[in-house]
């Protein structure tokens, strides 16, 4: 009879292919693509929420939305997945970059002339800019919302945290609005390459669908960051 220990070992052995898959050169890219696409979805939802800030109702819509996002069990679960995917996206990006650097070798070229687009070559730099923004951004709003002292507001019977005021205050700082806008530009460039690139990595490259993917990718990478940036700019000028 096999012991439990044996079967555990078998389980590990059985999972080796999975570890191999995600540590292979192709698998790493798949992690980037899948997490990237998920984050793209998240951005869409996030944007819809943010747009509530512009509603002229003293922040009610936005605050209700923020309450919903932090209390609905399904959304909460998804949000943890989302955090994890951010972490994966970042950690795998670091691993990829290190591996790719070493693959290039110690001696570089004296001259390079490339016909490739800038954002494709600089995803790491763009990602780093976005990461810096993310830290500040999380600290400012997410951190406040979860751990900070946020005043309450009552809508009908429900008492919710007044995140709207925090936002409105933050968006009165010209430097924060500037940082926010610049970061949105970085995100736009990141998406400009990343959106279509994710499909290529997942093997979705077909002459019938490529034009659609490329078109949607370009539109998304301009419209979504532009709308994100629009909100603080509008609120700053109000």
């Amino acid at each position: 009879m096999r012991s439990i220990f044996d079967s555990h070992q078998n389980l590990l052995l059985n999972m080796k292919w999975l570890i191999d898959l995600f540590s292979s050169s192709l698998g790493r890219k798949v992690v980037m693509a899948l997490t990237g696409l998920f984050i793209i979805l998240f951005l869409t939802v996030h944007l819809i929420g943010n747009l509530q800030l512009l509603k002229d109702d003293g922040g009610e819509a936005f605050n209700v939305y923020a309450y919903f996002m932090t209390h609905n069990p399904l959304i909460k679960t998804i949000s943890y997945v989302n955090y994890a995917f951010f972490v994966f996206h970042i950690v795998w990006a670091i691993m990829l970059t290190r591996k790719n650097r070493s693959a290039r070798g110690a001696e570089g070229y004296a001259i390079t002339n490339t016909s490739t687009i800038w954002s494709a070559r600089n995803m790491g730099i763009l990602g780093t800019v976005i990461l810096v923004f993310l830290v500040i951004h999380m600290r400012q709003f997410w951190g406040e919302m979860h751990f900070g002292t946020v005043p309450f507001k009552t809508y009908g019977a429900q008492e919710v945290k007044d995140l709207y005021t925090i936002c409105a205050d933050a968006f009165k700082n010209w430097w924060y609005v500037a940082l926010y806008s610049i970061s949105m530009v970085a995100i736009a460039f990141h998406l400009w390459h990343g959106f279509a690139s994710a499909f290529q990595t997942l093997g979705i490259n077909h002459s019938k669908y490529n034009p659609v993917i490329n078109f949607v990718g370009k539109v998304f990478s301009i419209v979504v960051p532009a709308l994100f940036a629009l909100i603080p700019i509008v609120m700053f000028t109000l």
């Binding site: 191999d20 898959l21 192709l26 290529q200 990595t201 997942l202 093997g203």
Partner: peptide, 27 residues
């Protein structure tokens, strides 16, 4: 580069569905 997409497909499909339990490829 459409070939690279095809390879991505082939590899992912292979790793997820091949009968080989031990390390097939990569890593």
């Amino acid at each position: 580069v459409a070939n690279i997409a095809r390879m991505n497909r082939e590899y992912l499909g292979a790793m997820l569905t091949s009968y080989e339990v031990g390390s097939g490829g990569g890593g």
